[in-house]
Write a protein that binds this DNA or RNA. Sequence first.
DNA 1: GCTATGTTCAAACGACCGTTTTAATTCTCG
DNA 2: CGAGAATTAAAACGGTCGTTTGAACATAGC
Lengths: 215, 215
Amino acid sequence: MPRPAKVTRVSKATRDKIIKAASHAFARDGYEGASIRAIVAEAGVNQAAINYHFGSKEGLYRAVLQTALRALMKDDEVPQNNLPRETALRRFVRRQLRPMTARDELSEYVRIFNWETLKPSPVFRKFMAREVAPFFAVATELARRFLPSRATDQQAVVGALWLFGQCSIFVRNADQLANPPLRLKIDERFVDGLADTIATWAADGLARLPTRTRS
Amino acid sequence: MPRPAKVTRVSKATRDKIIKAASHAFARDGYEGASIRAIVAEAGVNQAAINYHFGSKEGLYRAVLQTALRALMKDDEVPQNNLPRETALRRFVRRQLRPMTARDELSEYVRIFNWETLKPSPVFRKFMAREVAPFFAVATELARRFLPSRATDQQAVVGALWLFGQCSIFVRNADQLANPPLRLKIDERFVDGLADTIATWAADGLARLPTRTRS
DNA sequence: GCTATGTTCAAACGACCGTTTTAATTCTCG
DNA sequence: CGAGAATTAAAACGGTCGTTTGAACATAGC
């Protein structure tokens, strides 16, 4: 099981092609469902290249998760505390909804994480346990700006989770919304309006968080 | 590919054992991830029994979906329109949250449907397209009781979906909530409180559905 | 009890899986 | 340029998958 020591120009190109194709495959079929043969076919590289460059399928998945997390956190890492909380919330929601229309890398990454929430892979558990924390912290901070000052940490976490949930349900079901029997036309304007709606609901909901939640 | 003509006593027992084990497996690993060999091992039957009784893995999955849907719709089919809308909403939410604590068949069925929302199987698309409709209609009707009278059908559908989403995100992440770093103690009392919270939020949110949503 | 039919069983088939091996090719650098 | 390392390539390995086969077993009806 040789592994590259020096990283040459060509090998980097191969690595990038593999990761790109692997993101496609893992997003579409999940970790177990995606096959190495399908990935190398799409990437146009040899099958052994994956084991050579990443050691194993797990190693490749680790690399994809790394790439995904970096891309997803890129703009969220700087909490927009300088903005009015309503504006910050609206932007957060809109960003979460972006995969509904943007069929780009970002929506693939979101899908990979959706797979992980349903059946976490061992790779994910080990690798992500700490890396996701700061990403989640942004949402928690955002939620706290709307919560009553007496809210506990746990309530803030629940609020943040609630926030993610309201967005992700639409992202997850975007295709079903677009198809019969609903046939919603999901374009930028629709998502903009939806972001307004969710932001409004969420702001109201967080502000009146019942203290009974942790009864 | 022989199939049973008469259904005898013994064959029904075998069928039931298989369906029970298959529900376990499909809920845990999804349709593709679950293997026939694992199912028959858990059921304690021969491997060929599945092809004999259900024709194929797809046929078995169809039977499981049928069982699951029947169980999930059992009490929801009768819309509780005689109750005050707040009570009906609270009960609906509480029922949706039931799998958080009830580690019984019902929670397995919910998990199977979670798999399908992430990657619908051909079986599901064909079989469920119409069967799910009445189940979803109950939620839509419930949402409509809170919406402004001017709300369109599509807004009611979005409201219903929003309702499902608020519940399912907690169901889906129940395990993560219970584990570090949160360590929430998810018992009946917690879920009761959570149901109150969600019902309150949802009632408020639906009542002030912005008309811009369908811009 | 015998026959016919329903049901179970062990074994095998071909296909696909992730990984390894071995050899050829390409690149890097003195 | 040429030696040595890095990378690609093709083929094969062992394993699991869903399905099929053909014989053994259990059951029902006359």
